[in-house]
C-alpha cells in the first residue's frame, strides 16, 4: 500500500449536521409518498411519466447534493456530475426526435 507524500486538493472534512440530515430524509420520504400518490391518479400517460420522472430527479439531486457531498465539491466535480445530465438529455431527445420523424408510411 502506498503512502503518498503527495497531498493535493482539499482535504478538509465537511460534515452535515443531524438536523439537515433529518430534513433531507423527511423530504425524500415525502417525495416517495407523493410519487405513489400521483401514480394512483390517471393524468394521462405523458403527464404521469413526466411527474414521476420529475420527482425522481429531485430526489436524486437531493441525494447527490447532500449525501454525496456535491454541496462541498469544486467546479470540476460539478462538471462531472452535470455532464451526464446533458448526455441523458441528448439520448432522450435524440431518441424522441428519431421516433417522431419516422416515415409513417413504413410503420
Amino acid at each position: 500500500m502506498s503512502t503518498h507524500t503527495q497531498t493535493h486538493g482539499h482535504d478538509e472534512h465537511h460534515e452535515i449536521g443531524p438536523k439537515t440530515l433529518i430534513m433531507v430524509w423527511l423530504a425524500l420520504t415525502v417525495l416517495t409518498v407523493v410519487t405513489i400518490y400521483i401514480a394512483l391518479y390517471d393524468f394521462g400517460r405523458a403527464l404521469n411519466i413526466i411527474g414521476a420522472m420529475t420527482i425522481a430527479s429531485i430526489k436524486a439531486s437531493i441525494v447527490a447534493y447532500y449525501f454525496m457531498h456535491l454541496k462541498f465539491e469544486d467546479k470540476l466535480t460539478w462538471v462531472y456530475a452535470l455532464y451526464p445530465m446533458f448526455l441523458l438529455f441528448l439520448l432522450i431527445a435524440t431518441t424522441i426526435m428519431e421516433t417522431f420523424t419516422r416515415n409513417p408510411a413504413l410503420y
Binding site: M97, E98, T101, R102
Partner: peptide, 18 residues
C-alpha cells in the same frame, strides 16, 4: 463520439431526418 451513435442504425428503419 457521443454524437454519432445513430450511424450504426442507418438501415434499422430509423427516420431519414435523424
Amino acid at each position: 463520439s457521443f454524437f454519432v451513435w445513430l450511424h450504426h442504425m442507418f438501415v434499422s428503419g430509423i427516420s431519414e431526418t435523424a
